[in-house]
Simulated scan of single mutants.
Amino acid sequence: MRVTLWLPCIVTHVWTVNANVEKTIFLAPGPAALPNVPPALDDLRLDTLEPAYSPVLETKLAVQFPAAAPPRGLESWYLLRGLDEGRRYEVRICWPATQPTDFWLDTYPITHVFNTPELLSSLATYTQQRQELGLETTGVLKEHLPSQSQSALFLRIQAAASFYSSNRTLMEHPPAVDADIILDPYILNIFPRSLGPVAIYIGVVAVAAWFLSGYIYRCLLSIAAEPSPRPHTD
């Protein structure tokens, strides 16, 4: 009996340690008109997330232990495109709990990055590393991208390993972390679209429970209203 009672708790705890989540929430800015000079956004060869066509990116993120430079590990850059101006979004990164890592997520307007030397230098270093490794851009296809100005943001992810091992090689070269990066728009700027099915399920359960409770209540009233049987006399 005790095993049966503890089983749901065990399953719940196993599920909660299956993965970690970090996120940032933002409002999509207005369309940014960029100068028609290099480098163009497509020339940066960044992985792209777009709500309609590629909201999820499965990737491996290189990590590094915190140091004086950089204090938050390694930085990687991504492009968020096809956003609706004024709409609330959130970007989540999910990774296995078996790979202890600290993540920091920040979004920046396109023009802000180009006008900030520190951010621009970090972006240039990352894109150069990708080109040297011959990495191809993944995400939304070019034929899905409008040619005119659109609402877009840069996403910077900082990843720092947060474990300790007696293995010196592992401490000097921490393995890349398997991660899913998810771009999730909000419905009516209230809750994420991915929670829509959950909200519908809760609504259906609540309505069904309301009708069921009313039926049970009426049954109890009818039982209570029945006259008690007369005592049997010999």
Rank of each mutant, 00 (worst) to 15 (best):
V37N: 08
L220C: 08
V177H: 05
P231F: 12
L61P: 01
A176Y: 01
W104T: 13
S149I: 00
I187N: 03
S122K: 10
Y186S: 01
E75H: 08
V11M: 12
H173D: 09
E136T: 13
L153K: 01
S166G: 11
L188N: 15
V14T: 08
T59G: 03
R230K: 11
S122V: 01
N36L: 09
L120Y: 15
D184M: 06
T169V: 10
L120G: 02
S76M: 02
F26W: 05
L135K: 09
V177D: 06
T107Y: 01
M1Q: 10
S76R: 09
T137E: 13
C94R: 12
V177T: 11
P174W: 02
I200C: 08
E85D: 05
R87V: 07
R92D: 07
P192M: 03
E58S: 12
E50T: 03
P109A: 09
H173L: 04
L221R: 11
P8R: 04
P117A: 15
Y89I: 08
L220H: 10
H232Y: 10
P192A: 13
D180C: 04
G30C: 02
P39L: 09
N20D: 14
Q128T: 14
Q131Y: 03
T127P: 07
T127A: 15
P175Y: 03
R2E: 14
T24N: 12
W6K: 04
A28K: 06
W210S: 14
I10Q: 01
E136N: 11
P146V: 08
P29L: 02
T12G: 09
H13G: 00
D102K: 13
A69M: 09
S54Y: 06
E226T: 14
W15M: 09
S147V: 10
Y89S: 06
R87I: 02
T101Y: 04
N20F: 04
Q128H: 12
P31A: 07
S147C: 01
L5W: 09
V207G: 04
V17Q: 10
P185M: 04
P38S: 14
Y201V: 10
T116H: 07
V17A: 06
P197V: 05
E143Y: 10
W210D: 10
T4S: 13
Q131H: 10
R2N: 07
A199F: 15
V14W: 07
V91S: 02
Y53L: 02
N20R: 14
Q129N: 13
P29R: 04
E22Q: 13
P109V: 01
G196W: 15
P231K: 13
G86M: 06
L7C: 12
Y89R: 04
A176I: 00
D43K: 02
H232D: 06
S166H: 05
F103G: 06
W15I: 14
N20H: 11
L119I: 10
Q150M: 14
R218S: 11
E118F: 08
P185T: 05
N167T: 08
R156I: 00
